[in-house]
Design a protein around this nucleic acid. Sequence first.
DNA 1: TCTACAATTAATATTAAATATCAATTGATA
DNA 2: TATCAATTGATATTTAATATTAATTGTAGA
Lengths: 130, 130
Amino acid sequence: MEDGERIKYTNQRVEILNFLQNNYSHPTVEDVYEGVRKKLTRISKATVYQNLKFLASKGLIQEVNIKGVSRFEPNINPHHHIICKNCGAIVDFESKELTEFSLQLIKNMKEFDIESTNTNFFGICNKCIK
Amino acid sequence: MEDGERIKYTNQRVEILNFLQNNYSHPTVEDVYEGVRKKLTRISKATVYQNLKFLASKGLIQEVNIKGVSRFEPNINPHHHIICKNCGAIVDFESKELTEFSLQLIKNMKEFDIESTNTNFFGICNKCIK
DNA sequence: TCTACAATTAATATTAAATATCAATTGATA
DNA sequence: TATCAATTGATATTTAATATTAATTGTAGA
């Protein structure tokens, strides 16, 4: 598919998007595969990989790598993440203020042409404390 | 080795620390292995893995995962990273201001007990622009 | 409608990073 | 010096991700 062309919404892509829609648990490829398989029982894991990459490259979803594994989310706006060091739970943290503050701070960096920024917070979630 | 016990500085550990000392290029395990092998020709990659993990757990070095691969650095202070989306180059960005601003912003988060934060900046480095 | 073509899918193979296992070695201490 | 736990190094295994490719799909043009 050439760049700029209209996106082909195959069944597989629609189901993957459906699965991610309103799913803010930051599922891994495996998670998405298991989820989508309930509807499209014959889908291949390779297809899930390919399409998650594809949809992310088109900006329809976002890929985020946490501790070495890729995760995907429907929230395509710039935002930040809070990660539980114990159970690995990931929660979005929306803060335009932080994004702007960061970009403001870095704007004199001559060695790089900065395009984006995001902040990770690490800690222990309530479930793991108790 | 029990927690709190004194750290055993084996030859392997010393060489790994030596290699990382003043090395701000954020080497991967493979890089460290290749580097250390020049001195300790018989060292095993497993040993490098084990000791990098070990040294990081003791706070003597820092592990940072970028795009799915672990990298290690001697800079153990909280700091941030600038990453070239093209060549993968990683540069440290020191900013207590940013760290504190971030922690300030998150301090009302009830669902997590936040311990640390770090910000990644993504862009294109000078080498890759030209 | 039929044909041709390009994109997509699915199955499988391959790669690469990381972890696990475990016998041999080391080194400190009783 | 003997003992014992930690460490090392070799190898096996696991896991995430990518690569390959034949079959399928779907669309556009004849």
